Structures are given as structure tokens and as C-alpha cells.
Measured scan of single mutants.
Amino acid sequence: MAAAAAAGAGPEMVRGQVFDVGPRYTNLSYIGEGAYGMVCSAYDNVNKVRVAIKKISPFEHQTYCQRTLREIKILLRFRHENIIGINDIIRAPTIEQMKDVYIVQDLMETDLYKLLKTQHLSNDHICYFLYQILRGLKYIHSANVLHRDLKPSNLLLNTTCDLKICDFGLARVADPDHDHTGFLTEYVATRWYRAPEIMLNSKGYTKSIDIWSVGCILAEMLSNRPIFPGKHYLDQLNHILGILGSPSQEDLNCIINLKARNYLLSLPHKNKVPWNRLFPNADSKALDLLDKMLTFNPHKRIEVEQALAHPYLEQYYDPSDEPIAEAPFKFDMELDDLPKEKLKELIFEETARFQPGYRS
């Protein structure tokens, strides 16, 4: 834990890192770190609560700039109880001085990944967590956004079992017609939660990839272990087919990539493993919904509104309290091709509203 900075004593240090967030945020305490930044909790002297502050230093890398800009653009436009918001952003007053960006968010005690390492969940908890994931996802999908990296560590939890989806750095506007060349190379989302079509096709992607990830998360809540822990690309596919069985001819016809289709045709026939054999203690309604989410063919996979209306979630289902976005989200430009200098300018502009004396 960093010592509390005395008023006016300059930035606090946390594990050798400068955290320049005073005077409003003090009493910093280390939480963890990701690929390009550290997260601390801090005391907000204005709202009198502890908050989470993520320090991001992305400006050396085009990919990190892209992810940072995506996350900020999306989260500043989203407003939903099951999606983490941005409360404040701290950065230098000029673009030349801006080396880091500090993002202030609600402090959540833990995440689903940490929880599943230590606790076996009751059916009631599984049901409530799944409902909140789908409630947040309904809003995301209504904005025409794909999260693309749903996994237990991106689901934040607090002691009252509130759940918030975080990390929109890989999110995209849904565009089933656009052929994202190089899709697989830039697709760094965790393999275990990846839909089979991501490994088999490169053309376009749809909201059904997020539903697949939610199915993987439900299976993990039922058993405290990942359902498809593939060691590499082909191993991942083999794990999936080992449980779902061989795809039907109709399902194979959806695979545009001939090499991928021929690979699947070359494999020995596998039978589907019954879900109640894998999860003998699970609620039968939970397994019915799991089956509809972990469907090989993305066109037959359940959609988020149908999933919310499934009998497993009937005690929570309330369409009048499951809000959607006001308007579909649009990125003005494809960020993939922009140089990091341009992305830095866009991050600077996007964060201006939090600067003292800002006038829109």
C-alpha cells in the first residue's frame, strides 16, 4: 500500500510507478496490472468513496492506442447498470505532455475469474450472474457493438453480487458484411471463450460470437473449470467437437473457408456428449439454455433477447427493466489503419471533457 500523499506533496508512487492523480484522489492501494497499465484503488475526496484507477501508458504502440481509444469512446457513450462506466479521466493539459491516461471507475471487490478459483456457486448465484451478463449484453448488442472478449476476468463483482462487464478494448461495431482481413492475426481474445466460426472463417462476425462466450462462462460457473481449455488453435476446435459432436452437413455448409471445411470433413465422426453427463448436478433449465448458447452453427445460436426470456431466468426476466441503447454506435473511421500519432490526438480530444474549465 502506498503511503497517503500529504496535501501538495506531488504524485504518489505505487510499486515504483508514478500515479499522478492528486489532489482529488489519494490513499492509493495496488490492485493489479494488465498488459499496459496498473490498477489501484484510491480515495475520492470529492465523492467520499474509494474508486478504481487504471493507469494506461499506450502511446508507444499502435495496438494499445487503438484499444484505449475504443474503450474510452464506447464506455463514455454507454450507460447501463451492468456495464462499468467511466467516472473521470485524468491526463496532462497538453498533448505533448500526455504520456499516461488515468481512467477512474467504480471500485468492484472482485471478478468472476477470482471468485470461481475459490468458491463453488449455488444455482441461485449462477442464475443471477447469468441474468446480469445477458442484461448488459442486450444493451451492448442493441448499440450494434460486439464485445468480443467476454470471459470471467472481464466480469466485475461486488459483495452485493452486482455484476458489471468491463474491458471493451477489443470491441467492434457489428459488421457481418465487412471482410476484416487479418482478423485472426489481430484477434487476441482469450482462445477458450472463442466461437468456432472465428477459427473457421475470417469473413465478418456477428453478435452470436458473444453468446458463445457467455455459454462458455455459464459452463464454467457450473463446474469451476473452463469447458474448452484448448492449448492452441486446432486443439481448441477438437475440444469443442469432442463435446458438441461432429457438425451436420448443414452446419458445414455455413463454413465459407474450404480449407477449414475440408479439415472438419477429414475428422472421424464424434457423438455429442449429453450435458447432464458433463454437469450431473446442474439445473435442467440451465443445461437447456447452455445447449442453445453453445450451438456450433452461429445462425442457430440463441440471441440475447431470447436467452433473457428463457425459463431458467424467469424469476428475473423483465423486458421493461432491460434497457437498450438510445442509438446504434458508430465509429467515424476504422481505427485499425491509423498511425499511433493520430490515435493519440483522438484520445486527447475524447478525454477533453474531463479537463478543468472544459467548454463543449
Rank of each mutant, 00 (worst) to 15 (best):
Q105A: 11
K99C: 01
E341D: 15
V21A: 00
P196R: 06
P229A: 10
L222P: 11
L234P: 04
N224T: 13
S213F: 11
A286W: 01
P93I: 12
D20A: 08
G8K: 02
K292Q: 03
G182I: 08
H310T: 01
K207W: 04
E81W: 02
Y263R: 06
E305M: 01
E96F: 01
K342F: 04
A171Y: 01
A2M: 14
F354C: 11
L116W: 03
R277M: 09
I165Q: 05
H310V: 06
C40R: 15
L252C: 09
N257S: 13
V173Q: 07
A309F: 04
L130D: 01
D288S: 01
L278P: 05
P93N: 02
P311Y: 12
Q62R: 14
V145P: 03
L146G: 04
S41Q: 04
K151Y: 08
E220D: 13
L150S: 12
I89Y: 07
N123C: 03
Q355F: 02
K164V: 06
K138A: 04
L241Q: 00
Q66F: 05
L244E: 08
E96H: 00
N253P: 04
L170E: 04
H180V: 03
Y233L: 12
L308A: 02
T351W: 00
I86T: 00
M38W: 10
Y316V: 08
N201W: 09
A3Q: 08
T160M: 03
R79H: 03
E326L: 07
L116M: 13
H310W: 10
P247M: 04
V51L: 10
R194M: 07
E341I: 08
V145T: 05
H147A: 05
L278G: 08
L287K: 04
L278T: 10
A260Y: 01
I347L: 13
N276W: 01
I140Q: 09
L338W: 03
A7R: 12
I95H: 08
L200I: 08
T190M: 09
L267Y: 01
K344I: 09
Y312A: 02
L252A: 07
T351C: 03
D124M: 02
G22D: 06
A309Q: 05
S202A: 12
D251K: 03
H232D: 07
K164D: 06
D291K: 06
A282Q: 02
F279S: 10
V145Q: 06
I90W: 00
A52W: 04
K48D: 15
A195C: 11
Y113Q: 07
N82H: 10
L76T: 00
K292M: 14
H178Q: 13
A286L: 09
S360D: 06
I83G: 00
D111P: 01
Y131P: 01
A6P: 08
A195F: 05
K300Q: 07
R277D: 12
C254D: 07
L163Y: 04
K340T: 06
H178W: 03
Y205N: 15
K138W: 02
A143C: 10
F296V: 11
L264V: 07
A352W: 06
F348W: 04
F279T: 00
V273Q: 03
G204L: 08
L343I: 09
T26G: 01
L200N: 08
A4G: 09
V188N: 06
I209K: 11
T295W: 05
L308F: 03
K259W: 02
D162Y: 14
P268G: 02
W192L: 15
Y205P: 06
K330C: 02
V173P: 02
K54P: 04
G34R: 12
A9C: 01
S122Y: 10
N82Q: 12
L308E: 02
L265Q: 14
R261T: 06
H232F: 01
A143N: 02
P280L: 12
K344A: 08
L146F: 05
V46M: 10
L287R: 09
D337V: 14
L184K: 05
P274M: 04
A260I: 03
P280F: 06
C166I: 10
E96L: 12
H141W: 03
T63V: 11
H61W: 13
G16H: 10
D111G: 06
A327E: 11
D20S: 08
D288F: 08
K114P: 04
S248C: 13
G357K: 07
Y193K: 10
P323Y: 01
T160F: 01
L121E: 08
D106R: 06
S320Y: 13
I86M: 07
L28P: 10
C65E: 13
S142A: 01
L134P: 10
D162Q: 02
A307K: 01
K73N: 14
G204P: 11
T190Q: 01
V304K: 00
Y128D: 01
T118A: 00
S284I: 06
A171E: 10
R79G: 08
Q62T: 13
P319L: 12
E322P: 00
A42H: 11
L335P: 00
F296H: 09
L116P: 11
I89D: 08
K340I: 07
H147P: 10
V39L: 12
C161T: 01
P58R: 15
H232Y: 11
S246I: 13
Y64M: 15
Y128K: 05
A219E: 14
F279N: 08
S284T: 14
G32L: 00
D100M: 11
A219V: 12
A282E: 05
N271C: 09
F168W: 09
G16R: 13
P319M: 06
A195G: 05
P280R: 07
Q119P: 12
L313F: 09
Y205G: 08
L218D: 02
C166K: 08
G357V: 15
R225K: 03
Q66K: 15
A189N: 09
A6F: 00
R135E: 02
L308R: 05
L294Q: 14
Q97L: 15
D175S: 03
P328T: 15
F78A: 02
L343S: 10
M199F: 10
A189E: 10
Y113E: 02
I56H: 15
D332G: 10
R91Q: 01
D106N: 12
F19K: 05
I324T: 00
N262W: 04
L313Y: 01
D100Q: 11
D88M: 01
N47D: 14
F59G: 13
K151P: 00
L241E: 11
L244R: 00
H310S: 02
T68M: 05
M221T: 00
I56W: 15
G34N: 04
D318M: 07
Q355D: 04
A3L: 00
R15C: 06
Y43S: 12
R191W: 08
D179I: 08
Q315D: 08
R301Q: 04
F354I: 14
N281R: 04
K48M: 15
L241F: 11
L69E: 11
K285T: 12
Q66V: 14
I74V: 10
P268V: 05
Y193H: 10
A286G: 05
F354K: 11
T63N: 12
K55L: 07
T110L: 12
L287E: 06
L116F: 05
Y30P: 01
D175L: 10
R77N: 10
R191M: 09
A42F: 03
K99W: 00
S29P: 04
K231T: 10
S320N: 07
V104G: 13
L222W: 03
L156C: 07
T26P: 00
Q315P: 06
I53Y: 04
R135V: 01
I240E: 03
G37M: 12
K285P: 10
G22N: 12
M221K: 14
P11S: 13
P229T: 14
S266I: 13
F354N: 09
S142H: 06
P93Q: 14
A2R: 01
S246R: 13
L237P: 11
M333I: 15
G230E: 01
I324H: 00
R225M: 04
G34E: 13
V39N: 01
G32H: 00
T159W: 03
V18G: 15
M13S: 04
H269F: 00
I83R: 04
K207Y: 11
R24D: 05
V21G: 10
T63E: 10
C161K: 01
V46C: 02
Y205L: 03
S360W: 00
V18K: 07
G8S: 02
E186L: 09
Y205Q: 06
A174R: 11
D210I: 03
F348K: 10
H180L: 15
R353Q: 10
F329Q: 09
H180W: 11
V101R: 04
E12C: 05
M108W: 07
D321S: 01
V173N: 09
T26I: 15
V14C: 09
R359Q: 11
V21W: 08
D88H: 08
P280Y: 12
Y102A: 12
L244Y: 01
F228A: 01
A282C: 03
L170A: 03
K231Y: 09
N262T: 00
D179T: 11
I255D: 06
I31G: 01
Y317A: 08
H239S: 05
M221H: 10
F168C: 08
L107K: 10
A35F: 01
P176R: 09
D111E: 13
A325P: 06
F19E: 09
L343M: 12
E305F: 02
I83L: 09
Q132C: 07
